[in-house]
């Protein structure tokens, strides 16, 4: 493995093997694919007591609605999810209003024509396009993927020497690192940089330092000041990317906070149970040579 540059990016500081994120933005030899080291960010939903920040999810939903939803969909999500605990926490009326903005296929009327009705909270998110064919036609053959699971369906290609593997794994286990997808997505949204000298990309594609192969059909979707938050949060590109990533992170795993909360109780219970069993075993075996 000669091509390997580094590893363990953004893991806990002080590690001999880790290097600063800025140092990683260097390129592999001779104008080939760029190896950008995706920084590991701190998300509210990481770690033992992770949860989604309600205000951030609301901002992220705004970004999704105003920008992403022009091309993508969240087909596995229902409008009602927006009002469920652990999520953006919209009121029943707000959810109803959001749902009512779309038209949903109801069935066929008496003449056999397609009948549509206004969306209801129970409906799943409706795509702007009738189907993938229409989307492909609109985007020159590239279908914008559904974003329902995007933060779970993307990871980071981490490169390290084979002998570092046990260490990487131990660090992952100790820090419950599950946010690769979010890190990737955030970096991708920030990854539209100027084309490096000597690189050429195909017509109609955009250069992105994070996307595998660096050539991406999606043009830069977010920029500074694009979405008006209205709550005083600075609408920088970085903030917008973080917020929409958080929203999509929640969309991929709406029960995350519930899961982590339950986990704490289960672990505490099991620790006590294991302690009692060990005590029982010690008492039972106390006079026995073995």
């Amino acid at each position: 493995m000669t091509t390997i540059k580094t590893t363990l990016m953004g893991l806990a500081a002080g590690l001999l093997l880790s290097i600063a994120p800025a140092a990683a933005a260097e390129q592999a030899a001779a104008g080939h694919e760029e190896h950008y080291q995706i920084p590991r960010l701190k998300w509210t939903w990481g770690g033992i007591f992770g949860y989604f920040d309600q205000q951030q999810l609301r901002r992220g939903f705004k970004v999704y609605k105003e920008v992403c939803s022009n091309c993508h969909n969240l087909g596995l999500l229902s409008y009602r999810n927006l009002g469920e605990p652990g999520g953006p926490g919209f009121s029943p009326e707000e959810v109803k209003a959001i749902a009512a903005e779309v038209q949903v296929f109801e069935g066929f009327d008496e003449q056999g024509n397609i009948a549509m009705r206004a969306g209801r909270p129970a409906d799943n998110f409706v795509w702007k396009f009738k189907n993938a064919k229409e989307a492909a036609a609109a985007f020159g053959g590239a279908v914008p993927p559904d974003l329902s699971l995007i933060t779970r369906a993307r990871g980071i290609e981490r490169e390290f020497h084979w002998y570092e593997y046990p260490l990487v794994m131990a660090k992952d286990l100790a820090t419950q690192y599950q946010e690769q997808g979010a890190d990737y997505l955030h970096a991708l949204l920030l990854g539209y940089v100027d084309l490096p000298a000597g690189r050429k990309i195909a017509d109609g594609l955009n250069y992105n330092r994070v996307f595998p192969g660096n050539q991406l059909a999606m043009p830069q979707p977010l920029s500074d000041g694009q979405v008006e938050y209205g709550d005083g949060t600075p609408n920088t590109l970085d903030q917008e990317a973080k917020d929409v990533t958080a929203f999509l992170g929640w969309a991929a795993e709406p029960h995350l906070a519930e899961r982590k909360k339950m986990g704490v109780w289960v672990i505490v219970y099991l620790a006590v149970l294991a302690g009692l069993l060990l005590l029982s075993k010690k008492v039972l075996w106390r006079n026995i040579e073995h």
Partner: peptide, 10 residues
Amino acid sequence: FIYIGTAAFA
């Protein structure tokens, strides 16, 4: 007591 307590807890 330890045995019964453990069993009850389990």
